[in-house]
Design a protein around this nucleic acid. Sequence first.
DNA 1: CAGTATCCACGTCGATACTG
DNA 2: CAGTATCGACGTGGATACTG
Lengths: 123, 123
Amino acid sequence: MDQPDAFSARCPTRQILDRIADKWTVLLLGLLASRTMRFNELRRGVDGLSQKVLSQTLKSLERDGLVTRAAYPTVPVTVEYAITDLGRTLAATLEPLRLWAEGHMEAVEKARIDFDQRQQAAA
Amino acid sequence: MDQPDAFSARCPTRQILDRIADKWTVLLLGLLASRTMRFNELRRGVDGLSQKVLSQTLKSLERDGLVTRAAYPTVPVTVEYAITDLGRTLAATLEPLRLWAEGHMEAVEKARIDFDQRQQAAA
DNA sequence: CAGTATCCACGTCGATACTG
DNA sequence: CAGTATCGACGTGGATACTG
């Protein structure tokens, strides 16, 4: 049987990589790794994330077995999102990514300025 | 001064996260981590990646200081893409992501089947 | 070989309004 | 509170053709 290989477009791994290598996935799993949260709590936790995309992303994460959704018949309804064991293993590999972005922000911004100046000089 | 915070839409970190949490970035840096490669070599190495998107992505990676581009005036022209030290630190955090996708592919696919069946049963 | 330029189909996203 | 439905603007991406 074939080895999983993300470099091959036909491998299901490719599609999974596309889903997990996603800004919102990184941030949402980052939040849920610390504790269970409600829908609007997540919405407030991730600035700039619309209700529609949050809803879509959570549904994908649930379908992929990364989070669970629990609805309680209170009035109004209460819904709790929790990370699964599988999701926790992913969150552990995603956290360094967020930390890299935060830690190397200045280096990247400097590189951009240098690059843009070289472009300017060439033109 | 503000702490970098990817959860805030205004922080530059967010934009950087958006660029690095990308399928093609993961795969391209994965290839370049092992050795310097030519344009068409990268194209062949990443199945399903169009010439246009490869070109765009490489330009972004170069601008962000993650890869370097060296053109040699041969006929026809030879262009070598190499990873930088900064890029290497990112590649090191991206590789676990690709490995996670490859390693947990079956678990995710199983979760999807289960989820879809529950949806079916509910409808 | 290593791109760029152009066109267009497509999906994604935000905004808005509505519901149990 | 936690969504869904609809719409329209937008950008992304593929296919194709062309260039130094």
